[in-house]
Design a protein around this nucleic acid. Structure first.
Length: 332
DNA sequence: TAATTATGACGAC
DNA sequence: TCGTCCTAATTAC
């Protein structure tokens, strides 16, 4: 799944292409038929991303809450107005998506996926038909509209120009404004939502209150929003911090540093669509790091390999029912 | 064709 | 701590 950066990117796409328009909603798969019928015909009026969740507001105080879980995805198709920041990232990643449709992949949160053949799960994809020029020139030569449904589509939102297909979400439900507020209230601070200073104080307070290992706290969405398994491993490495350290024993200044680092990585992630965690590298090393998913991180997915800095073997253990990668030598 | 994997989160013990 | 749910790509057989 998309960690926080992907959800913010998706929200931007909604803001650009869905918000302010009436949508036809359906559930091709049938499992959200009732909800879709309630949305159908309404105008989307606002989108919010908080941590790993997205809230899409419709007129009449009806909100759609979506959590993609581990392998949910939104597929966009149609003539899409691309967010400038996303478009700029395109220069680096513009390549045809693996489905080989008539769409150009303007961005692909699978950045790491499309740059590598290693078994990454499906990623959030965005297919964009950039111009009239490409319309009708695709492999199928048909430029069908709306696009044919492929696979299990829980929810399809269609405007006159844009099609957004949701598949595999762990949560897809309608909420009242009250419920949206309640959901968000339970979430820890998100650097792109909350005031940075305020967020930092909340994060520091939550972490330093608990005996729980910092490696678990970073994954706890009530402590801080948007961090997933990749960012957890990388943030801890960047902080040179042992994942087992109880929250209350992490020096306050280091806790603050982690928050600010998360804020920085999140911004980079939103801009590039990639979980770039080795941004301190020189250009040549950076280029190499980008070349494949396996070369992109300090410790994530590097079990058994030598630490890039000290050469010690990167360890793999289960923490919070997820795979935790770390360097026992660098992280104390 | 089946098994495996994945950037999550819940609820039942 | 476990099992469960959501889906599709990749790998193994």
């Amino acid at each position: 799944m998309p960690e926080g950066h992907s959800v913010h990117r998706i929200a931007r796409q909604f803001d650009r292409n869905i918000v302010g328009r009436s949508v036809a909603a359906s559930s091709p798969q049938g499992r959200f038929a009732e909800g879709a019928s309630l949305i159908d015909g309404r105008e989307a009026v606002e989108v919010r991303a908080v941590g790993k969740q997205m809230f899409l507001g419709f007129d009449g105080d009806l909100w759609l809450r979506v959590h993609l879980g581990m392998y949910g995805a939104w597929d966009f198709a149609g003539e899409i107005e691309v967010d400038p920041t996303i478009a700029s990232a395109n220069g680096r990643m513009g390549q045809t998506n693996q489905r080989g449709t008539d769409m150009d992949a303007v961005f692909d949160d699978a950045g790491e996926n499309s740059l590598s053949s290693i078994g990454a799960p499906r990623k959030t994809r965005v297919h964009v038909r950039m111009s009239e020029q490409t319309r009708g020139l695709g492999d199928d030569g048909s430029a069908e509209w709306p696009p044919p449904v492929v696979g299990q589509v829980r929810l399809r939102l269609l405007t006159t120009l844009t099609c957004a297909d949701l598949r595999g979400p762990t949560a897809c439900e309608l909420q009242t404004p009250e419920e949206v507020r309640a959901t968000i209230a339970k979430l820890g601070p998100d650097p792109l939502v909350d005031d940075l200073c305020e967020g930092e104080e909340r994060f520091v307070a939550a972490v330093r209150r608990k005996p729980t290992p910092i490696g678990l706290l970073l994954m706890d969405q009530s402590v801080v929003s948007g961090i997933g398994n990749v960012y957890r491993a990388e943030l801890l490495y960047r902080a040179l911090l042992d994942p087992h350290t109880p929250g209350k024993l992490v020096p306050e200044e280091l806790v603050r540093q982690i928050w600010r680092d998360w804020a920085r990585l999140l911004v980079v992630g939103v801009e590039t669509g990639q979980m770039m965690t080795m941004d301190d590298l020189d250009p040549e090393a950076y280029r190499r790091a980008m070349a494949s998913r396996d070369d992109r991180h300090w410790v994530y997915h590097r079990a058994g390999l030598a630490c890039r800095v000290c050469g010690t073997e990167i360890l793999l253990e289960e923490m919070g029912a997820r795979k935790l990668y770390w360097c026992p030598s660098c992280q104390k």
